[in-house]
């Protein structure tokens, strides 16, 4: 239980800020697609050496990066848009992954890969989650300025620096890393939940991007604690409970958020003179 909380909080630290940028870059669903794309890599890792942390991690990262790079490449050399090529590749990847898992594994294994097992995190997995969270925080700090500029005014960034493409690739790598870390705890389907839901919630509380990132981490941790408590006391499956908790925070934010929240509109307020 305590391990689960530590693991989920580590995930929140790494994924939250990444989610904020995915949202601001209008790539919210890309995270979802990437999460599916990871499956065949993890499955092949599983085929080779069973439920082994290392093999499934390496496989997942390899598969995620392959899909990201291939779809980026196809989008650049053909008129196909990146979202369409991403959809094509992740679907292929997902089908491949499910096929591989069902060829060899049992249903229990499939469930593990799809939904994770946050209550069964061992030391090695915890270290992996913490490592990914640290690495992604550090790297994000290093590329923060060009990444923001690449979101706001890519043309200007191109005119002053060649950093745009490398920064984009580093960012996509961070997305994949965090998703792979997330799938050990929450499974491939839900790992993107701790990335996007806290980020979307944070957007309703601040205009400032630094504050948004901090809030997304905070919301992620809150959701982890609340979800695990609910799962313990009500006997719910823990992974989905965490994401549901994040979902409740998200809905509350949409309703009551300080910035653009729906309830704010209902409050009577006279317009200002200037």
């Amino acid at each position: 239980m305590r391990r689960a909380l530590v693991g989920a909080c580590a995930l929140a630290v790494g994924s939250g800020p990444i989610g904020v940028f995915l949202m601001l870059r209008r790539m919210s669903l890309t995270g979802d697609a990437m999460a599916h794309a990871i499956l065949p890599g993890a499955a092949i890792g599983y085929l080779v050496s069973g439920l082994s942390l290392g093999a499934m991690t390496v496989g997942g990262i390899a598969a995620g990066l392959t899909v990201a790079l291939l779809s980026g490449l196809v989008a650049r050399v053909t008129p196909l848009r990146e979202d369409a090529s991403m959809a094509a590749f992740y679907l292929i990847s997902l089908a491949l992954g499910v096929t591989i898992v069902s060829l060899r594994g049992s249903n229990v294994d499939l469930l593990h890969v799809l939904f994770g097992s946050v209550l069964a995190l061992d030391d090695a997995t915890l270290l992996l989650l913490a490592g990914v969270a640290s690495l992604s925080t550090l790297v994000l700090a290093l590329i923060l300025r060009p990444l923001i500029l690449d979101c706001v005014d890519p043309g200007f960034l191109r005119s002053v620096s060649r950093a745009g493409l490398p920064v984009h690739l580093i960012f996509v790598t961070l997305v994949v890393l965090n998703l792979v870390a997330g799938f050990h705890a929450l499974g491939t389907l839900l790992s993107v939940g701790l990335m996007m839901l806290p980020a979307v919630s944070a957007r309703f509380w601040s205009e400032d991007i630094t504050a948004m990132m901090a809030l997304s981490v905070l919301f992620g941790m809150l959701a982890s604690a609340a979800g695990l408590l609910a799962s313990y006391h009500l006997g719910l499956p823990s992974g989905p409970a965490i994401i549901l908790a994040a979902g409740i925070i998200c809905c509350l934010s949409v309703l009551a958020g300080r910035r653009d929240g729906l309830l704010l509109r209902l409050l009577p307020a006279r317009h200002r003179t200037a």
């Binding site: 601001l24 923001i148 979101c151 706001v152 005014d153 043309g155 005119s159 601040s206 991007i209 948004m212």
Partner: peptide, 16 residues
């Protein structure tokens, strides 16, 4: 060289 493009491809919804 500084360049001001015609319609800056600026994402104005970005919180900046």
């Amino acid at each position: 060289i500084a360049y001001l493009p015609q319609a800056a491809d600026l994402d104005r919804s970005f919180p900046l």
